[in-house]
Simulated scan of single mutants.
Amino acid sequence: MKTKTTPRPRGARPPAVVKAFAPGSVANLGVGFDALGAAIDGPGDTVTARLARHEGVRILSIEGDAGRLPLDPERNTAAVAAREVLAEARRKGHPARGLDLVIEKGLPLASGLGSSAASAVAAAWASALLLGIRDKKALLRPVLVAENAADGAWHGDNAFASLLGGIVLVPSSDPRAALRPVSLPVPSGLRFVLVHPELELPTAEARSVLPRAVPLGEQVRQGAAFAALVAALHAADLKTFGQWVSSDRIVEPARAPLVPGYAAVMRAMRRAGAYGVSLAGAGPTLLAVSEEGARPAAIARAAVAAWKAEGIRADARVHRIDVAGARQVA
């Protein structure tokens, strides 16, 4: 993939610092394990990138993580993404030697809301703009490599959605192959209700319980359900879309026991009128499909009350799809 750069007007000085925001995201949407992601409006991560004289990437500070994230650039997704972007720019002849990053976390850790992906994407986009790269698709591999540094797996669902915005189908996350995510239609009335309990579930732990083999019949059914979900989006049929979101019989049943109160909260959201419910990514956040109007707020209240009955505090928010993805901010 060729990297597009934007030529500067003659005499114009390149920016010395760029700040970028990347939205949170939810992955899988039930049957789309590792192959479907959606960017959501609201909180996200912000990264400021500055040109530096030293070699490589350095993290100057991280805010909003209570000191839990590593400053080591080899172990932080933001720094890994920036490193990959810098390396690509230098291969194309850019004279930059190094980058300094300041990371502002707006998303909770280990929540299923694409926290590590948002940091990677914000850093990649800030670094790219700083180095004259304007093509977001040139950043697919850098953010994929960064996500791999977080949990050891290759999956671009969260990162590609956060980068590009909207709902994104990911046919392949193989770093050796062409990366060609497909943007899917976003029905105008679609709303996600995301309910985040005061629990954490690291992605690596959630991946560790997944089945290593799947019966052929189950895989056939899963593939058909995934196709039906995509067709429902194209038809703007939110009720049918929600039904297929709820239809996973491979991944979600394996992960559900890791989330205390899962069954009770799911039942409460369905009774409140959710069209479909599932884990948001690896969890523990739960997702309900709804549409604009009063119903999403009712679903949110029901979910918070159900978790409270289980002795767990939770917050709920109603989200639109963020169609812009990563962007520069002042």
Rank of each mutant, 00 (worst) to 15 (best):
R176Y: 04
D237S: 04
A314I: 03
A231C: 07
P7Y: 08
A27N: 06
D248E: 12
T240V: 14
A294W: 05
F226P: 00
V193R: 03
D157V: 09
V289I: 15
V323Y: 02
V214W: 04
E84S: 02
L233Y: 00
Q243H: 12
G11N: 13
R141L: 14
T5C: 08
L179R: 06
G132E: 07
V265C: 01
H94A: 08
R267H: 06
P181T: 05
P257I: 00
G166W: 02
R180G: 06
E292T: 15
G67H: 14
S173T: 08
P260I: 02
G67A: 11
V209K: 13
D100H: 07
V102I: 10
V289P: 04
T285E: 02
V323E: 14
P14C: 14
H54Q: 14
L238N: 01
T48W: 04
A236S: 12
A149Y: 03
A27M: 09
L184Y: 05
L130E: 09
A254R: 12
G165V: 01
I133P: 10
T203F: 04
A39S: 15
Q222E: 12
A280K: 03
V259C: 09
A178V: 11
F226Y: 12
D72P: 03
V318R: 05
F160I: 13
D151H: 14
P142L: 02
A268E: 03
R83C: 08
L107I: 12
G165L: 01
V145K: 05
G112Q: 05
L101D: 04
G261M: 00
P175E: 05
N28H: 07
R221C: 06
L216V: 15
L190V: 01
S247G: 11
M266V: 07
L99H: 05
N28G: 11
G112R: 06
G273W: 00
A264K: 07
P23I: 03
H196P: 07
R10Y: 01
